[in-house]
Simulated scan of single mutants.
Amino acid sequence: MRVLAALSGGVDSAVAAARAVDAGHDVVGVHMALSRDRAQLRSGSRGCCSIEDAGDARRAADVLGIPYYVWDLSERFEDTVVADFLAEYEAGRTPNPCVRCNEHIKFDALLDKALALGFDAVCTGHYAAAGTDDAGAPVLRRAADRAKDQSYVLAVMGPTRLSRAMFPLGDVVSKDVVRAEAAARGLSVSAKPDSYDICFVADGDTRGFLRDRLGSRPGEVVDADGTVLGAHDGAYGFTVGQRKGLQLGRPAPDGRPRYVLAIEPVNNRVVVGAAEDLDVDRVEATDAVWFGDPPQDWVDCRLQVRAHGAAVPAQARATAGGGVEIAVSGPLRGVAAGQSAVLYGGPDDATVLGQGTVARAGRTAARNTDAGARA
């Protein structure tokens, strides 16, 4: 097959491309330039897609003996991933930019361009397993290395685009194996630090990034009864479940920590309360993507709402208008609107059934702490 290998400049994508070459595919490497600032530099292990990363990707392609190109997708990235990030936080929700990047960039803009140029598939260094079931339908599964598994952020791509994706690192048992393989192949990125946090917030200061883009908007921090406890300079800088950085002027009456329960963007208020007020047993999600027929009746599954969070027992069913209704039977706390709700099933609960974007979360009984009930 003709394969377009996305080379980020890191060790994972380099080894994935190398494995695609070893498999006999006709491989071409491409680095996605996502920053409008051509002088952007990487800050240690923070950020990615910098000018240094482009150079590392080129060197990896040279070692592998494959053609190499740089595609400028910065405008598309700014107009989709960054714009969505800002709009979601401004609306009091908590987005996952990695999910949106996979949705709009890697498996939309990049894949569409690859297919238009005659490539059969896109290869990336994601830790996930792509295959087919007994009927030949595309299946997305967790990676062998559960600690590095990225199926959560890939579930949004759906079965059609999954059929055009290759994840050669799905069977790797640890990152140490990848680094050792890179070193053995003579790839200079073998010891390069992993990137983490949000790639376009290279200094790791998400609240500062939001303040720079959205401006200062002072408001109140209140408890569930409306009592003013403190102040903030932008409700967009908070997320449901947050404990640190609340800057409250007084402790709770019982002396226990307070957590963010809700963000009210219209009133510009942040509501805080006790940890147990974050417990949920129901989740509603929109914009569902299914890897199979949408279940009309309740199906047993496991629900994951954070990229590196635990999956808890649940039941789910499709709802009218492309939504998902989820009844949670395991312990789940601090679910924010805007997060991805990914459902897993199969004999070992490692197969992605579908996903949606959280619209509301709360409790069937007791006082409601609805993540979507925001003014």
Results as ranks from 00 to 15, higher is better:
318 A>P: 11
338 G>E: 03
258 R>E: 12
38 R>I: 12
16 A>G: 06
247 Q>R: 15
260 V>T: 13
304 Q>I: 10
72 D>S: 13
370 D>T: 02
115 L>W: 02
93 R>C: 12
116 A>T: 10
363 R>Y: 00
116 A>V: 04
63 V>S: 04
258 R>T: 08
127 Y>D: 01
355 Q>T: 12
161 R>M: 00
352 V>A: 08
331 P>E: 15
27 V>F: 11
129 A>I: 00
265 P>G: 03
282 R>I: 02
85 F>Y: 15
243 R>Q: 15
220 E>Q: 09
26 D>L: 03
88 E>H: 12
186 G>H: 13
369 T>L: 05
120 D>I: 00
62 D>Q: 15
213 R>Y: 14
77 F>D: 06
309 G>E: 04
168 P>G: 02
341 A>S: 02
269 R>E: 15
47 G>M: 05
36 R>N: 11
258 R>M: 13
168 P>A: 02
80 T>R: 07
47 G>I: 11
39 A>E: 13
21 V>S: 05
343 L>F: 10
290 W>Q: 06
57 A>T: 10
81 V>E: 10
217 R>K: 05
337 A>T: 14
133 D>E: 07
28 V>D: 00
163 S>W: 12
278 L>Q: 04
91 A>Y: 04
358 V>E: 04
353 L>M: 14
212 D>F: 09
66 I>G: 00
76 R>E: 10
192 K>T: 06
195 S>P: 03
189 V>H: 11
348 D>C: 01
144 A>E: 04
13 S>P: 02
296 Q>E: 12
235 A>V: 07
27 V>H: 07
215 G>A: 07
225 D>I: 00
296 Q>F: 07
207 R>T: 15
307 A>P: 14
75 E>N: 04
6 A>H: 07
209 F>I: 08
204 G>T: 09
53 D>L: 11
266 V>F: 13
181 E>R: 03
1 M>H: 04
277 D>P: 05
212 D>C: 11
12 D>S: 02
283 V>W: 10
55 G>P: 09
63 V>A: 12
340 S>T: 14
187 L>M: 13
172 V>R: 15
335 V>N: 00
86 L>F: 12
81 V>K: 05
317 R>C: 03
163 S>N: 11
336 A>V: 06
